[in-house]
Structures are given as structure tokens and as C-alpha cells.
Design a protein around this nucleic acid. Structure first.
Lengths: 214, 214
DNA sequence: GTCCATATCAACCGAATGGCTGATGGGCGT
DNA sequence: ACGCCCATCAGCCATTCGGTTGATATGGAC
């Protein structure tokens, strides 16, 4: 445990405070070297390519260059660096996309120092590190191998979706379609699963992105 | 009050039950003649052009040819017919768009028979008939001559909107942007006003329609 | 015939949302 | 200086939502 090579890393986060905190934390610990920082995904990719670190600590939600895209880009380029996603919330809806995009690990910013260090070492070795919440979600994903891709939306579900996009509350949707509110909720639950989202607002967004609406 | 010419009308509604109900109601009353029925906006426009009725009773939400579009089309063609919108809910978010598109009146389906008759006669004369709820909303619109068109969304509001489109709950948006949840709600309230919607799902939809997102 | 997706409905519950009212402070145009 | 918009925050409250569990019926797919 005592003998280890130095692990190089870069920090990609739009919040200077977070960057400083991470840099300070890792520089004060033996065995780590922070090569640089970036404030968004695009910068992050450029920096990773230029500095070739062992590990990239990446925030997911950033203005101008989302973290998921950055991870995908690094993966596409076959970068050597392992990406460790550091996010504020485990409920983050980008969890799975990030992992699918090629992230090696995923954990919360409020994790204890030692856990961070351990995670970075693990990531450098190519081992996967997941926070418990993410891990359990992965399991459920395996159980339901559906949610990700092009799950077709049924005609009825699409009708509901259209009304949702117009701001119609469930009760009115029910009246409009001559069904009960319970049924509307069922359709919505199915839609959320198919579209890989958690609420109606995100469902509408995904629907537009996929051309289901608009 | 006793002497009046016969008023011709057509019914446009996707629900056969409603069409029958309206037809029966008007045919059993003196001074009205139902020339025809249509099940969606496109049919409705065609029928109105062909039969040239005095009044078009139009539902707003219909599959395949929205009511608002149909009204706009009739207006564009300079049709003689007056359009009277008959809707189920006064909370309908299409209220104002429908009136802007050229509807002569707007009332609820559950209005008393006499009120319907009066409204149709008024519409035939070109007089405006509004349900109380709609009328009050119009007043507030006049007070706030903003809401309709291109109200610019502030940068901060757009940030919030983006997160909303990703399904982020307010609490997390707050954390993500380093502000309080109260502020997030304020931004959302402003967004709803600017986009002319009532909830986050509709806000996302409008944002995509206007190119603010996507 | 059986399995599965779809569509329908119910009841319960905690959490999230939206409405309302009101307030403070910074920046900008006139 | 004054008004206006933006951004920030607070508290309350009714409504709405989403999760969960479970059930029934129908119509294809195999």
C-alpha cells in the first residue's frame, strides 16, 4: 500500500471553487499530481489530449460543453486517460449516459477524502468505482435492458405526450382522452421508462430531441 | 327578440358524442341550422369553406389538425364565418392563441343551453363572447402587454430552463447554480409568463418550438 | 396455448411543483 | 434621481406528480 507511482490528473469543472478544492486536496496528498484544470467539456478534452493524464476528474453539468459529450469524445479518440465523474447528486439523470459514454467511475463530490483518493487510484488502474446509488441503478438497468435506446412510443402514449407538452395536467388529459387519471399516469410512467427520464419536462425535451414531437 | 333570421353553423370536434349533442341542441332550437360536422381542424376548414356557415363551433384540442391552426387558416382565407371556440376547460392554455388567431368567442362546453344560443347569435353578429375566466385573463394580458410574442429569456432563466429540460428538480437546480430554491422558482415563474405556459413541461416544449433549446 | 405489450383502472403516499405576496440590491437608461 | 429589469431570497399552501403495487382485458407473437 505504501509504494505507488504518482498518478497524474486534470480537473474539469465549471466552478473555480470546486477546482481549487480538488487541486488542493490532491496536491496535499502523496502520489498525485494535478497537471491542469479546465472549466468546460471542450477545454477538458483539449487539455486531456495535450497533457495525457492518468485520470480526468469530470463534472457533468457545465455550460458550454456538457460532460457526457466530453467523455464520449475522449472515448472516441481512444484517450488513455480514465474518466472519473464527480457530481453533486447521485440522482443526476446523466449518470447512466455518462457511464455508457465511457466513464470509469462515478461518485459524489461530498465523498470523504480517502474515498476520493481510493477512487482515483482505482480509476487509474482501470477499475470501476461507483457510488452505491449508481451501482444499484445499474443493476436495475440490467434487469430492464430496455430503457436506453429506441424503445418505440405507442400511439396512445404519444397522444398523452402531446398534451403534456401543452401543459395539460393529468386530470385534463384524462378528460380529453376519455380515460381515467390513473391510466394517464400509467402511460406517463411507461413513457418515462422508454425515454429514460424522470419527469414530464424531461420527457418533452427527449421527445423533441428524438423528433417524436415538434 | 322574437324575429330573427336563421343562423347556419357547422360543428368541428373530434368527439362524436359532442358533435351529436351540439347538433341535437341546435336543431331542436328555432333559428339555427347545422349544416355539417367535421372531426378535426383540416376537415373543419374545408367544410367551412364549402358550406360558408355563419358560425363555426370549434373544439381546440383535436388529433390531426389543431383548432388554433384551423382558426388561423380561416382568418387567413378571409372566411365570412365567425369562429366560436367551445372547450372543456377554461384553464386551456390555448385560450389566448385561439383568440389571437381570430376566434370571435370562447366558452365552455358545460355552459347552459341558453347561453350557448345567445353566444352563437352574438358570434353571428360579430360580437365577442367570452367566458368570465377567459375575459379576466384577457384583462390581465392587457395589463401586461408582454407575454405573447418574443419576450426575451434572460441568460439566467435559460440556464434554469436547460436544467429543467434535463429533468432536474428545483432543489438540484438551485445547488447546481449556487442559488436558493426560492430563486429557482422565481426564475421559473418568470419563464412561464414569458413563454405563455403554466408548467415546466410546456415551457420545455415552447422553448424547443422557439429554438431556445435544442 | 402461452407469453408479452398495450390499454385500462384503483388507492395510497411522500415529494415536487406552482401560486401568491413581499422584499432587497445591482445595473442601466433618461 | 427615478423607474425598470434582473437576480436574489422567504414562507405558506393547495395542487399535482411520480412511485408503488396490483389487477383486468385484449390482441398479436411464437
Amino acid at each position: 500500500m505504501a509504494e505507488q507511482r504518482t498518478i497524474t490528473l486534470i480537473v474539469v469543472d465549471d466552478h473555480p471553487v470546486v477546482r481549487d478544492g480538488l487541486r488542493g486536496m490532491f496536491e496535499s496528498a502523496p502520489g498525485f499530481e494535478v497537471l491542469g484544470e479546465a472549466a468546460d467539456g471542450v477545454e477538458g478534452v483539449a487539455l486531456a489530449v495535450r497533457l495525457d493524464p492518468d485520470v480526468v476528474l469530470m463534472d457533468l453539468r457545465m455550460p458550454g460543453g456538457g460532460g457526457v459529450d466530453a467523455i464520449a469524445e475522449l472515448t472516441r479518440r481512444g484517450a488513455r486517460a480514465k474518466v472519473l465523474v464527480l457530481t453533486t447528486y447521485d440522482t443526476d439523470s446523466d449518470t447512466l449516459p455518462a457511464i455508457e459514454a465511457g466513464a470509469t467511475g462515478y461518485l459524489l463530490k461530498d465523498a470523504p477524502r480517502e474515498e476520493l483518493f481510493t477512487a482515483v487510484r482505482a480509476a487509474a488502474d482501470g477499475r470501476t468505482v461507483l457510488s452505491p446509488a449508481v451501482a444499484s441503478r445499474l443493476v436495475s438497468r440490467v434487469r430492464t435492458p430496455a430503457a436506453a435506446g429506441r424503445e418505440p412510443v405507442s400511439a396512445r402514449e404519444r397522444e398523452v405526450l402531446e398534451l403534456v407538452a401543452r401543459g395539460t395536467p393529468n386530470k385534463e388529459i384524462a378528460a380529453e382522452l376519455f380515460i381515467s387519471e390513473a391510466t394517464v399516469k400509467t402511460h406517463l410512467t411507461h413513457l418515462y421508462a422508454k425515454l429514460g427520464v424522470k419527469d414530464r419536462a424531461a420527457a418533452v425535451a427527449v421527445a423533441y430531441e428524438r423528433g417524436i414531437l415538434g
